[in-house]
C-alpha cells in the first residue's frame, strides 16, 4: 500500500434537484490508478470536483496527506492536483500557451517553459504542435493537450472525467497507454471516471462504484433493485416481475442488490443446492479479456446477468450464443444495500 494521499470524511454535497452525494469515508493511496464507475447522474463528476477542490462540499472534511483542507490552504493543495474535464476547454490561443498556463500560475521560471512543454508534448504524442491554434485541434488531440497542460506541472494527482467519451478507438488505445505511462513514469495518482466497467477493471488498481451519490461495495455489473419480501420463509428481493433473488439481509423496503460477476457460476445442467440462487438463461454476448471471459446471460427477457469465468472454463463448456445455460450464485454472495 502506498502513502495515504486523499481522505474524505462524511462528505455531503446537496443539489436543488434533490440529488445528493454522500460519502461517509473514502481513501485514495498515492501512486495508484483509480476508476470511478457508475451510471449517468451517479455523482462521478461531483466527486471528482470535490476531490480536485473545485467544489466545496456542504458537509464533511477532506484531507490531503492527512492535512485538513480549508480556505487557507486550498489553493496551495489544489496546485498539487489537476483535472481534465469530460469536454476539455482549450484557451483560444496556441497549444504552447495552453500548455504553459499552469506554469504561469505557479510562477515557474520562464526559461524552462520551452523544454518542459516540448517534453510533455512529446510524451502525449503531439511533438511539434506548439504553434498550432488549440481550438482547431481534433477531439483526441484536444484531450491530449488538456492532459499535457496538467502534466507539465507534475501534479501528484491527475483527475480525468470521462476521458474516453467521444474519442475514436485509436485514441482510446493511445490514452489508455498514456495513463499507464504517466502513472509508471511520474508515480502520479490517477483517478478517472468511466461507464466502461471492463475498461475500469483493465486499467485501474481499484474501482470505486457510485450509485445515486453513494459509494457501493459491490460491482455495478449485476446491480438490481427491488423490495425485500418473504418468500416461503426465505428473504428474497424481487428484481423483476418473475425473478426473485434469495438474500440474507436485515434491510427492509426498497434496496439495491449486487452480485459480483466472479461469484456467478455457469453450468449446462441445473444446479441443486438449498443456498444457491439458480436461473435458466440464454447467452447473449461473450467478451474475452486476457484469461477471463465475461459471459452475458439473459434470464426470462427480464434481467441480464454477467458471469466472469476463466477463459479455459468457458472454452471447455463449448457453449454458443443463444444457447441455454444455468447460472447460480450463493445467497451469501449477494450484497444488499
Amino acid at each position: 500500500m502506498g502513502e495515504l494521499l486523499l481522505r474524505l470524511e462524511n462528505i455531503v454535497k446537496r443539489y436543488n434537484s434533490g440529488f445528493s452525494l454522500e460519502i461517509p469515508h473514502l481513501e485514495l493511496q498515492a501512486g495508484m490508478i483509480y476508476s470511478i464507475v457508475g451510471p449517468n447522474g451517479a455523482g462521478k463528476t461531483t466527486l471528482l470536483a470535490i476531490l480536485d477542490l473545485l467544489d466545496e462540499p456542504d458537509e464533511g472534511e477532506l484531507f490531503f496527506k492527512e492535512e485538513n483542507v480549508g480556505t487557507s490552504n486550498s489553493l496551495e493543495i489544489r496546485r498539487k492536483m489537476g483535472m481534465v474535464m469530460q469536454d476539455p476547454y482549450l484557451f483560444h490561443t496556441s497549444v504552447y500557451r495552453n500548455i504553459t498556463a499552469g506554469l504561469r500560475y505557479r510562477s515557474v521560471d520562464r526559461r524552462i517553459w520551452k523544454p518542459m512543454a516540448k517534453e510533455i508534448l512529446q510524451m502525449v504524442g503531439l511533438e511539434g504542435f506548439e504553434k498550432r491554434y488549440a481550438p482547431e485541434l481534433s477531439r483526441g488531440e484536444s484531450q491530449r493537450v488538456a492532459i499535457a497542460r496538467i502534466l507539465v506541472f507534475k501534479p501528484e494527482v491527475l483527475f480525468l472525467d470521462e476521458p474516453f467519451t467521444n474519442i475514436d478507438k485509436k485514441n482510446v488505445t493511445l490514452l489508455e497507454e498514456l495513463i499507464k505511462t504517466i502513472n509508471r513514469k511520474y508515480q502520479t495518482t490517477i483517478v478517472f471516471t468511466t461507464h466502461d466497467l471492463v475498461q475500469a477493471d483493465r486499467l485501474a488498481g481499484d474501482v470505486i462504484s457510485l450509485v445515486e451519490g453513494r459509494v457501493i461495495k459491490g460491482s455495478l455489473e449485476n446491480l438490481f433493485w427491488g423490495d425485500v419480501v418473504d418468500l416461503e420463509g426465505l428473504q428474497s428481493i424481487k428484481i423483476s416481475p418473475n425473478i426473485a433473488v434469495s438474500v440474507i439481509t436485515e434491510c427492509r423496503g426498497r434496496v439495491h442488490v449486487s452480485i459480483p460477476p466472479q461469484e456467478i457460476k455457469l453450468s449446462l445442467r441445473p444446479i441443486e443446492s438449498s443456498e444457491e440462487n439458480s436461473f435458466l438463461g440464454a447467452i447473449k454476448k461473450v467478451q474475452i479479456e486476457g484469461e477471463v471471459a465475461r459471459v452475458f446471460i439473459q434470464v426470462r427477457k427480464e434481467a441480464e446477468f454477467v458471469s466472469m469465468i476463466p477463459r479455459s472454463t468457458y472454452q471447455k463448456m463449448d457453449i454458443l450464443i443463444d444457447s441455454p445455460v444455468f447460472l447460480a450464485f450463493k445467497t451469501a454472495s449477494v450484497m444488499v444495500f
Partner: peptide
C-alpha cells in the same frame, strides 16, 4: 463566457485574480 473557463483555470492552479 464558456462556463468551463473558470473551472479549467481553477484546476490549473489559478487564484481568483488570475
Amino acid at each position: 463566457a464558456d462556463k468551463r473557463v473558470e473551472r479549467t483555470a481553477m484546476s490549473l492552479g489559478a487564484n481568483r485574480i488570475q
